[in-house]
């Protein structure tokens, strides 16, 4: 079994379980497992820097935030009587539509994989050098980089304003 199929199986399985069970704490943890598998895939794609950043930013920061909110709200389950009866993936409406869409996806994937099988192998010359990435980020993408920093500041201010209790100073 090549590492690719192992990581792919973990990513798909964990992601499926994220949406297939009701306890958000487990959802968050399974998503972290999925991110770990994706990070492994990035290593296979000769992008070790992205792999580590994936762990630091997604698993280390964003998911902690999610876990924090889940614990803070402490309302872990979907509790309405309707939810109690029906498994998240087993509701009649979504099931019919989903079955059609999933069938479409499967057909499309098989078609695409058949087509892509001959063109598939990666050529040499991957850019895994952190210096090269950094140089590109601060020259060619400098404008986008600055815009992202503004985005982060706006998001930070927005989050503080939204989450603060009214009247609190």
């Amino acid at each position: 079994m090549t590492p690719f199929y192992l990581f792919a199986a973990i990513a798909v399985g964990a992601s499926l379980l994220v949406i297939a069970q009701r306890n958000p704490v487990y959802s968050v943890l399974l998503l972290i497992a999925s991110f770990g598998a994706l990070s492994g895939l990035y290593v296979l794609l000769d992008a070790p820097f992205v792999a580590v950043i994936q762990i630091i930013v997604y698993a280390g920061a964003i998911m902690v935030l999610f876990l924090f909110v889940v614990m803070l709200l402490n309302a872990p389950h979907e509790e309405t009587p309707y939810d109690e009866q029906v498994h998240p993936l087993m509701r009649p409406g979504p099931m019919r539509l989903g079955a059609v869409l999933a069938l479409g996806l499967v057909v499309e994937l098989i078609w695409a994989l058949e087509k892509g099988a001959e063109s598939g192998r990666f050529a040499g010359g991957a850019v895994s050098n952190v210096g090269a990435i950094g140089r590109l980020l601060f020259t060619e993408y400098a404008f986008a980089f600055e815009v992202t920093s503004i985005l982060i500041i706006v998001a930070m201010v927005g989050a503080v304003v939204l989450a603060r209790r009214e009247g609190a100073r």
């Binding site: 798909v12 994937l109 598939g120």
Partner: peptide, 17 residues
């Protein structure tokens, strides 16, 4: 060995999920 198509297929499945 996995090809580009395999990665794209995996990505499509994850996106669908």
């Amino acid at each position: 060995a996995p090809s580009l198509g395999d990665y794209l297929a995996l990505s499509a499945v994850l996106f669908a999920i």
